[in-house]
Nucleic acid binder design. Structure first.
Length: 434
RNA sequence: GGAGACGUGUCCGAGCGGUUGAAGGAGCACGAUUGGAAAUCGUGUAUACGUUAAUAGCGUAUCGAGGGUUCGAAUCCCUCCGUCUCCGCCA
């Protein structure tokens, strides 16, 4: 792991908390479908501390003797005897150094691969079937309409076949009014979040380094889901990565919190584990646009912010008149870095079911620890911030939702929702262009 | 791509082999002064880990990262990462 952060102890989980209450940590990992971790961790930790203490004693000895040499030489004496003593220490020190480092690395790797501890408010469950619905908004369109790709292809504005020729599967070409509709959605979401929800618009890099991906938790475990360049940069799987890393390696004055960032970016995902799923249409692509929200908070404010952020995402769907429901993910479905996650699912009449369009997570101090993002809580009190991220919302999927929910069966066209009309250059309805 | 310069604490900025965790500022905190404030003066102000009941003491490490030379390195050498300047090229 290369990066600006120094190897200052073990950060990804608080080792002291694990030491103080190993049973609680084991129980937390059990909710994540993992076996008991604490005994292995604490054994490593104990060995590491032993090696460290022994090493430090030798270092203290060396420092004292070296200082003596300095004094002897200054007063013109012969220091060769003391110098020989110090030299003798060095072999022993090298062995202990190596041992301490090996143990520390091993401990770090172990901890870096463990997911965040879930909030007590997260319901138990095995997989997505055990997620719990919290609320619904809007009336789901009852009539079965064609799926978005059927609509788009019939209009002549969506072309997966040509995209496949140049880029392979899971890419789509949009053109004309449909391409513009995608852009309109992105701009609309950005305008709402910056104008009404207090987020600052950011145009971030789309390529990031290892340590940035480590900071937000994509690495080391989920490398196979990501795209990598020939220079070993990573393509963003989500703007969460750069937006959250904006506070990496910093000590923030609390007066400047909360910080709320939003960005409209492409996202790139290998979808390695999703072979055969959603193969048709734009539901699951290697590349899609998303408007992301990130909040950096004081710890005591992160729970309230989680609710607020989720409302921000719901609001844009409401402004578009899209029926949706909000669910809380169960223990088995909550992502690696999250304490608690709300998903918002939009109604897709083409599938006659709700599909994920946003995911809002409170990561607590998990990412902050990994990227060393802190705030000054008092004169001698520096603590980790809490970070949250949420889609506000996925533009590709919002496009699908608009297409299917605003589909006009009489002519195969798509009505432009009122909220998007200012962005569509006078187009009221998207129709087949001859 | 060619030539050069530089990475020090919350920030700016000295130091260029021996009590340097690091001068001096700024900022911040507390105190004095004030009717109150500004200004001024005084004092204090890094992080991590280990040890510990302890955010008390003590120890160790940390001057971009990693390695090397040395009894001893912020200071010397090597590699990498990053930043800046000039020239060239380019959307």
């Amino acid at each position: 792991m290369r990066g600006p952060q120094k190897n200052q102890g073990i950060k990804m989980h608080d080792i002291k908390t694990i030491r103080d209450n190993p049973d609680a940590f084991d129980a937390a990992m059990k909710r994540r479908k993992l076996g008991a971790q604490s005994s292995d961790i604490l054994k490593l930790d104990e060995e590491r501390r032993g090696a460290q203490t022994a090493l430090q004693e030798l270092q203290a000895q060396r420092n004292a003797e070296s200082q003596k040499i300095g004094e002897i030489k200054k007063s013109g004496g012969d220091a060769s005897e003391v110098m020989a003593q110090v030299t003798a220490l060095k072999n022993e020190m090298a062995i202990l150094e190596e041992r301490e480092r090996t143990l520390a690395d091993s401990l770090s790797q172990h901890l870096a691969a463990l997911p965040n501890v879930l909030s007590a408010a997260v319901p138990d469950g095995a997989d997505e079937n055990d997620n719990v619905e919290l609320r619904r908004w809007g009336d789901p369109r009852a009539d079965k309409v064609p799926e978005h790709f059927e609509i788009g292809e019939a209009l002549g504005l969506m072309d997966a076949e040509t995209a496949a020729k140049m880029s392979g599967s899971r890419f789509t070409i949009l053109s004309g009014a449909l391409a513009r509709l995608e852009r309109a959605l992105g701009m609309f979401f950005l305008d709402v979040h910056t104008g009404e929800h207090g987020y600052t618009e950011v145009s971030p890099p789309l390529l990031v380094k290892d340590h940035a991906m480590f900071g937000t938790g994509q690495l080391p475990k989920f490398a196979e889901d990501q795209f990598r360049t020939t220079r070993d940069d990573w393509l963003l799987p989500t703007a969460e990565v750069p937006l959250t890393n904006m506070v990496a390696e910093s000590i923030i004055e609390p007066a400047t919190l909360p910080r709320r960032y939003t960005a409209f970016t492409p996202c790139f995902r290998q979808e390695a584990g999703a072979a055969g799923r959603d193969t048709r249409g734009m539901i699951r692509q290697h590349q899609f646009y998303k408007v992301e929200m990130v909040s950096v908070m004081l710890p005591e404010e992160s729970e309230a912010e989680h609710e607020r952020m989720t409302r921000c995402a719901e609001t844009v769907l409401e402004k578009l008149g899209l029926a949706h429901r909000t669910i809380v993910l169960c223990s088995g479905d909550t992502g690696f870095g999250a304490i608690r996650t709300y998903d918002i699912e939009v109604w897709l009449p083409g599938q006659q079911r709700y599909r994920e369009i946003s995911s809002c997570s409170n990561c607590g101090d998990f990412q902050a620890r990994r990227m060393n993002a802190r705030y000054r809580a008092g004169e001698k009190d520096i603590r980790f911030v809490h970070t949250l991220n949420g889609s506000g919302v996925a533009v590709g999927r919002a496009l699908i939702a608009v297409m299917e929910n605003y589909y006009d069966p009489s002519d195969g066209g798509i009505f432009v929702p009122d909220a998007l009309k200012p962005y569509m250059g006078g187009v009221q309805k998207i129709l087949k262009t001859a």
